[in-house]
Design a protein around this nucleic acid. Sequence first.
RNA 1: GCUGCCAUAGCUCAGUGGUAGAGCGCCACCUUGGUAAGGUGGAGGUCCAGGGUUCAAGCCCCUGUGGCAGCUCCA
Length: 670
Amino acid sequence: MVIAILPDGSKRELPDGASVMQLAESIGKGLAKAAIAGRVDGKVVDLSHKLVGEHQVSIVTDRDPDALLVLRHSTAHVMAEAIQRIWPKALLAYGPALETGFYYDIALDQPISSSDFEKIEKEMAAIIAEDRPFSRYELSFDEGMKRLQSEGNKYKVDNAQRAQAGGAVSLSWYATGQSGKNWEDLCMGPHIPSTGKIKAFKVVSVASSNWHGDVKLDRFQRIYGTAFFDKKQLEEHFKLQEEARKRDHRVIGPALGLFTIDEKVGQGLILWKPKGAVVRQELQNFIGMHLKRQGYQQVFTPHIGRLDLYKTSGHFPYYRESQFPPLVDREFISAKAEEGCTCAQLSNLMETGEIEGYLLKPMNCPMHIRIYASEQRSYRDLPIRLAEFGTVYRWEKSGELGGMTRVRGFTQDDAHLFCMEEQVAAEVQGCLELVKIILGTLGMKDYRVRVGLRDPDSAKYVGDPAQWDRAEAACLAAAESLGVNFSKEPGEAAFYGPKIDFVVKDVIGREWQLGTVQVDYQLPQRFELEYIGADNKPHRPVMIHRAPFGSMERFIGVLIEHFNGAFPLWLSPVQVAVLSISEKFNDYGQQVVNQLKEAGLRVEFDNSGDKIGAKIRKYTLEKVPYMLIVGEKEQAEGKVAVRHRTEGDKGAVSLTEFVTKATTAVGERQ
RNA sequence: GCUGCCAUAGCUCAGUGGUAGAGCGCCACCUUGGUAAGGUGGAGGUCCAGGGUUCAAGCCCCUGUGGCAGCUCCA
């Protein structure tokens, strides 16, 4: 006897071995028709899944978010079959569903390009039109393995072995149709009942990928697609993507004159234009205020430092792959040349760092450490908090660069806190408070917090396990006190200590790490830092690295998207535009402009011969918060007609009233 | 770095081997106006760079540079 406990708590009895579909039918015809899959004790299963005993069962229809994942996984099968029809030599590896679609990794010598998509889609449409059922069958592990080996697809063999390692005792296949007659794939499922349920789909893109994500292993062509239960949703999906593209900081940023990237200057190097510089400067002033309050001291350090410094810190050569090559000492190079050193040999010396020279700094910490070490420190001085907007340079691979979010030169709102171990918890908490203030002021609520812990099985993490435990406990406690949800992620720690990261999504849904707080026991040791304790003996301080914005480039890139280019008044590059009705009122307009400037506001004056409608349109598109329109009436009464970029006409007020309101809002960072 | 796609005016883009185009922007002139585009005219090109094929290349081929999507990486 099967007892199905439905979501409303009611029970339904069916004969043993009844399928989920039969359950759906027993509830109602409409439900059976809409059924895509079932959920048994929380796990999504096929409609054909046979029930035995008592379970919590619900029917998954197309309104259930899980249904979309099942549909997409099934569509991935259909796409794979279509691809194998066109290219019989294509070997399948792995084809999961995604939040926005699905992909299938395929090994095939011949490149598949976007011009092939139509052909693939045509084959897929044919398979869907046949409305073939997805039918599941299982083989014992040994039997299944024998079959896979005879088929000669090493990726599927590997998948099966991994399934076994995960505890599987049997292997399951899905035939798109009838086993033995139609296309089949080794697959855990679940799947939609039949291909006819796929009402809207599209092959979207192709990219390369590697087996198990390892660049040293076999390369695949990863074909992306997406699927929906109806055409409207599919169209909506692409429309949303297009809308997102319009918010992209790479589109908006240059259009609003915030920044530019110049091929002649170099890949991944940001040129901040005057308007972008205003935004950055305002943010820096804002954080500077809080740094003073929290007892930070400002420092400045150079952009290059001796290679030796970075050997001590461990950045070179350990991270040399992601650094610009060293700047070689001229004397050293001539001496080597006289010894008959070839270019190739010289290059090797640079690789290994056996060379006199300088490095463009990849991090600020070694410089701050040397400032700490320049004086004898007492426990009474601690914590010492050194802050700098420090520009660093990293050799990111060309394919990783893009916009302001991934660049080769960027400025961190960096600081290093040197403290006693018992001060770590309080200091980490202070850092988190700062991040919270920043995100709160800017109205950024959509972020997640990640506490990166060490993976005890990995050799990557250096240092004393007891210290790690204490540092991790301090980070977790600080994250706890933040009052927002956070995830613990073993293996995400820096090699020198645990960290707390703030991660946000961009308009395309890609995640970026912004603010970060990291506890470090390693660098103080490598640089043999000390302070004199109350016991008159030397002790080793602990360092905290922290950057609440992360980098100015990445942060502002994300910020542009967050505001869709419409910055709040205090951040707006141009806060007020004065628009004269006609050139007759330009003198009065100029007086208004002068007074606004006098009050410290950033103003632009449109005294051109354009009509007022055109002027309004121009500044609305430029997302200037306030437009002040001045004509005959305003001139006579000493007023300005206020228009807000989104709220429209706000009526006329005296100039002094506007100035008071605007400057107050700026002061309150609105 | 890898796979695929892309590169034409300041911007967005059209141009399938035979005399380089449009819209917006810019400049000038006319117009002097009341809350999202007034009119007319003009300037503006190394068709990403280098090489090749061809009587002839923006267009076809090769190499490089840069951009986009994804993979990988991200101290």
